[in-house]
C-alpha cells in the first residue's frame, strides 16, 4: 500500500475550513496589506491593484505629512487620546471596584449584575441618544437643577467646545464598565479559596490581600481586559455620531469620523493613511497581550 499524499489527509476538514481560510487571507491579511500599501500612494477615488499602478501613484510619506498638518486630524487624535485614556482608566478602576464589591458574598448579586451590565446590551447609538437627552442644557440636568433653585448651576458640556469630548467619556463609561466588572469578577472568582484562607490565617487585612496578592495573580486577565477595552476605544465611532456628531464645530471629532469621510469623498489614500495610524496605535496596545499569550505557550 502506498502512503497517501499528506495534502489529502483530513481532506474534508480542509474543505470545510476553506471559508475561514478565505476570510483570514483575503479580508484580514489582504485588506490590511492593501490599506497600508495604498496609504503611500496618491489615489483618490479608484482603488488600485497591480504593482504597476502602485508604482505609478507612489508618493512615499506625503499622505502622512499632509495628515499631520491637518488641524482636524490633530483635534481627532487628541480627542482619541483623551477618550482612550480616561475611558480605559476609569472603566478599569470602576470595573475592578464594582467587582470587588460584588465579590463580598452579597445578597441579590444577580440583581446588581443585571443592573450594571444591561447598558452593555444596548448599542452605542442608543447610549448616545439617551445621554444627549440627559445632558441637553435646555431641558436636561442643567435645567432641572436650575429649576430647583440653584439658578447659576451650569452643566453645558454637550455644547461646550472644550468639554464635549468628556460627555463621550461619561456615556461610554455608562455603557462599558459593566463588561469590565463582569470580566474582573470572573477573574476574582478564579482565585483559589486557599489563598484567601491563608491570608486570613496570617492576619493580613482584606484590602492588602486584594492589592498585594490577588491583583498580581490576576495579571494575565487584567492585561486581556486592558487590551479589549483599549482597542475598543480606538474604534469609537457610533457613540460620537449619536452624542455630539463631532461638534460643536469640530471639537469632539475622532479619527474614525475623519477616516470615514476621506474614504468615501474622494481622498482614498488620505483615509487609508489615517487608518494605518490607528492600526499602529492598536499594535502598540496589543504588544503586552501578545507577550502574555506567547509567554503562556513558552511555559507549556
Amino acid at each position: 500500500m502506498s502512503r497517501p499524499n499528506p495534502l489529502f489527509r483530513n481532506l474534508t476538514s480542509k474543505v470545510a475550513a476553506t471559508p475561514m481560510i478565505f476570510i483570514v487571507l483575503v479580508v484580514f491579511v489582504g485588506s490590511t496589506a492593501w490599506t497600508v500599501a495604498s496609504s503611500f500612494t496618491s489615489i483618490k477615488t479608484l482603488p488600485i491593484f497591480t504593482p504597476r499602478e502602485f508604482y505609478d501613484t507612489w508618493v512615499g510619506w506625503d499622505q502622512y505629512v499632509r495628515l499631520f498638518n491637518t488641524p482636524r486630524w490633530i483635534t481627532s487624535i487628541t480627542n482619541l487620546a483623551i477618550y482612550g485614556l480616561l475611558y480605559s482608566g476609569f472603566a478599569f478602576v470602576i470595573g475592578f471596584l464594582l467587582a470587588v464589591l460584588m465579590d463580598q458574598k452579597i445578597r441579590a448579586e444577580g440583581v446588581f449584575r443585571t443592573i450594571y451590565l444591561y447598558p452593555f446590551a444596548l448599542s452605542f447609538i442608543v447610549t448616545g441618544k439617551v445621554w444627549a437627552w440627559i445632558l441637553n442644557p435646555a431641558f436636561g440636568l442643567e435645567k432641572t437643577v436650575r429649576d430647583l433653585g440653584w439658578t447659576s448651576f451650569s452643566f453645558d458640556w454637550l455644547t461646550n467646545r472644550d468639554m464635549a469630548i468628556y460627555t463621550v467619556v461619561i456615556a461610554g463609561l455608562w455603557q462599558g464598565t459593566g463588561l469590565v466588572m463582569a470580566l474582573m469578577l470572573a477573574g476574582l472568582r478564579s482565585i483559589d479559596d486557599e489563598i484567601w484562607r491563608a491570608a486570613r490565617v496570617d492576619g493580613i487585612p482584606k484590602w492588602r490581600t486584594y492589592l498585594q496578592i490577588v491583583v498580581p495573580m490576576m495579571r494575565p486577565v487584567m492585561i486581556t481586559i486592558f487590551v479589549i477595552v483599549a482597542s475598543g476605544s480606538v474604534r469609537v465611532y457610533d457613540l460620537v455620531i449619536a452624542l455630539t456628531q463631532g461638534g460643536p464645530g469640530n471639537s469632539s471629532q475622532v479619527p474614525s469620523m475623519y477616516i470615514y469621510e476621506k474614504l468615501f469623498v474622494g481622498a482614498l489614500a488620505q483615509g487609508t493613511a489615517a487608518s494605518s495610524v490607528l492600526l499602529l496605535a492598536t499594535a502598540v496596545i496589543l504588544i503586552p497581550w501578545i507577550l502574555v499569550e506567547f509567554g503562556k505557550k513558552g511555559r507549556g
Binding site: M20, V24, V27, F28, V29, G30, S31, T32, W34, T35, P47, V227, S231, V234, R235, P255, S256, I259, Y260, L263, L268, G271, T272, A274, S275, S276, L278, L279, T282, I285, L286, I290
Partner: peptide
C-alpha cells in the same frame, strides 16, 4: 491571525470590504 486580527480597527477594512 484571526485572534490578533480581531483587534484591528474596523476602519482598516472598510474600503477593502
Amino acid at each position: 491571525i484571526l485572534l490578533v486580527g480581531s483587534f484591528i480597527p474596523y476602519q482598516v477594512f472598510l474600503y477593502p470590504l
